[in-house]
């Protein structure tokens, strides 16, 4: 229990006939940074979506901060978990500032002044405080994703989940988002990041997790993972994404 913030035990998730997660087990320690990679359809997104209970698992158990996820406890557990989506999912009808203050005001009960002060602090941290009054559609993709990160941080979560945060971005905007994520990692946040950005993984990951066909195939510190992958599937995958 000591230091373990997420415990995933034999989790199964199926979509109809398709077995997206096949008895997956994983533990995450406080402050640990885990990068999950694998071919598309391998279940990596499903795994972190289950941890945030955007999907409900069919079997096994998931504990977040010692609370087992059920329909009843999901809301409570989710308050400790922030999520960043591939498609940003900002609220298009609200200004950037309002995107950031809504959760703290409605869920955490902050006053508007406190929520705005907090929002400006995090917008500063993702380096776009000057965009506070704009609408999401007026920002570039990279800026939108940084707003989405700030929105999650405004809830002051203890764990951050990233679901392919740079996959929908133009290449020149990927760095600005990754920089923010590196800083966040250095601040000691517990993070699970689904990504194919292997440069980022080498810099921040404490542990690499390789998934394929709904299973965790390989887990290793990044030095070992990149220099000497054990399984053939993992070797092949790494060749494909690092090969050119």
């Amino acid at each position: 229990m000591s230091g373990t913030v997420i415990e995933v035990r034999d989790v199964v998730k199926t979509f109809g006939e398709f077995r997206a997660l096949n008895a997956v087990s994983m533990g995450v320690a406080a402050g640990e940074k885990i990068v999950v990679c694998g071919p598309s359809g391998s279940g990596k997104s499903t795994l972190i979506r289950c941890i945030n209970r955007l999907e409900t698992h069919d079997a096994g158990r998931i504990e977040v901060e010692g609370i087992e996820l059920t329909d009843k406890t999901a809301d409570q557990a989710r308050r400790e978990v922030g999520m960043v989506f591939q498609q940003f999912n900002l609220f298009p009808h609200l200004t950037v500032l309002r995107n950031l203050t809504l959760g703290p005001m409605r869920v955490r009960g902050l006053s508007q002044a406190d929520a705005e002060a907090r929002a400006m602090e995090y917008l500063g941290r993702v380096r776009i405080p000057e965009q506070a009054e704009k609408f999401p559609s007026q920002l570039s993709g990279g800026q939108q994703q940084r707003v989405a990160i700030a929105r999650a941080l405004c809830m002051e979560p203890r764990i951050m989940l990233f679901d392919e945060p740079t996959s929908a971005l133009d290449p020149e905007m990927i760095a600005e988002v990754l920089d923010v994520m590196v800083e966040l990692a250095q601040s000691g946040m517990t993070m699970i990041v689904v990504t194919h950005e292997m440069g980022f993984a080498k810099r921040v990951a404490d542990r690499m997790v390789f998934m394929d066909k709904g299973e965790i195939v390989e887990t290793a510190p990044p030095e070992e993972f990149f220099s000497a992958p054990e399984t053939e599937r993992c070797q092949k995958f790494l060749q494909q994404i690092l090969g050119h």
Binding site: R78, L90, F91, R106, V107, R151
Partner: peptide
Amino acid sequence: GQLEAARSISLS
């Protein structure tokens, strides 16, 4: 995605 984002910040 809008519903998921709302849920991810714990909105009721």
